[in-house]
Design a protein around this nucleic acid. Structure first.
Length: 316
DNA sequence: GCATGTCAAGTTGTG
DNA sequence: CACAACTTGACATGC
């Protein structure tokens, strides 16, 4: 089992810049592109720093923030890397980062946010979603990221019809997106059981979020869901991907959806240990939470193996 | 300097 | 019916 960090750091000196469409709109095009160029350049350099930190900490995967290149697909102020004054430099750096990730076996992924909805009945929503996915796929190509993970989206009163629209829209996606796209069970609408048929039909993998599954159960056990989701990865020849988090206020009454700072080791499914899989740790303490979980697992493993510490990552 | 309000986009569920 | 939650800053603005 390899652990993954999501987007940000708590203590490491890595940060990503952004800007807004509103601010950009007040500038002439030339100044817009100059400003964006500086931000994108800084962000790619920080992505390199992020991967160096991830490697140093023994983390095996990193989820890249969607706005690495902010507002790139915005209808008014959108742009291409080639439009930026430092475009060539930025493209070169992107390639370097990708090579670094490959060299050190750091798995990279994208997770577009809630505005990407392929099941929507509104054509403009779907069109915007496709544009955003194509942007993330271009970055994925440049960086060697094998995963763009999304949710199935809204239900609109009829889940089966919404999934049918999802499948129809899937075929309008460029191959660069289709070969990377994965579907994740969410905490209000779509369960593993809901998504499996669509994943099988389209030949796309299912990212199993065990916290969402516990908030939004479907009759499958954690072990069954892990196995069934795992089968969808075998067809595409990629290592299974899962998400793990702990509820901020515990599993007792109240809303258990908000994420806690750290992972309660009790929430880690025992059947995940020793399994060939990547597990993104969604916790507010970011890299501190990933490191703490790995330490706790090592301690447990060390006890099991009577004193042999420093287990290789893939045996965790 | 520091505090505060704002930020492209969708959908659902709550008050 | 309006608004917060998803994730969470970072930035621009104004004192």
């Amino acid at each position: 089992m390899r652990t993954g960090l999501c987007c940000l750091f708590k203590e490491e000196k890595v940060s990503f810049r952004t800007t807004t469409a509103k601010v950009l709109s007040s500038l002439p095009r030339g100044e817009q592109l100059a400003k964006l160029s500086g931000i994108c350049h800084d962000n790619v350099r920080n992505l390199q720093l992020a991967l160096e930190a991830v490697r140093r900490l023994g983390i095996g995967a990193f989820r890249i923030m969607s706005p690495l290149f902010p507002r790139m697909t915005h209808p008014q102020v959108g742009y291409e890397i080639a439009d930026l004054p430092s475009g060539d430099l930025i493209s070169g750096l992107l390639e370097d980062v990708g090579n670094y990730a490959r060299l050190h076996d750091i798995r990279l992924s994208f997770h577009p946010d809630q505005f990407v909805v392929l099941s929507s009945p509104h054509p403009h929503v779907v069109a915007n979603s496709i544009r955003e996915l194509a942007y993330q796929a271009r970055l994925g190509e440049a960086l060697g990221a094998d995963l763009i993970n999304i949710h199935a989206g809204g239900v609109y009163g009829d889940k089966q019809q919404a999934l049918e629209r999802f499948r129809r829209h899937f075929f309008h996606l460029p191959e660069t997106v289709r070969s990377r796209l994965t579907l994740e069970n969410d905490d209000v609408s779509y369960t593993v059981r809901d998504l499996l048929p669509t994943c099988r039909m389209l030949g796309i993998p299912l990212v199993y979020d065990v916290h969402h599954h516990r908030c939004n159960p479907d009759g499958l056990t954690v072990e069954e869901a892990t196995e069934l989701a795992g089968e969808t990865w075998q067809g595409v020849g990629k290592e299974q991907y899962c998400h793990l988090s702990s509820p901020r206020g515990g599993w007792g009454g109240g809303d258990s959806r908000p994420h806690a700072d750290y992972i309660d080791p009790e929430d880690l499914p025992p059947c995940w240990r020793g399994r060939g899989m990547t597990v993104d740790i969604e916790a507010k303490a970011k890299e501190l939470a990933v490191v703490r979980l790995m330490e706790q697992m090592n301690q447990k493993t060390a006890v099991i193996h009577e004193g042999h510490e420093e287990r290789p990552r893939n045996l965790l």
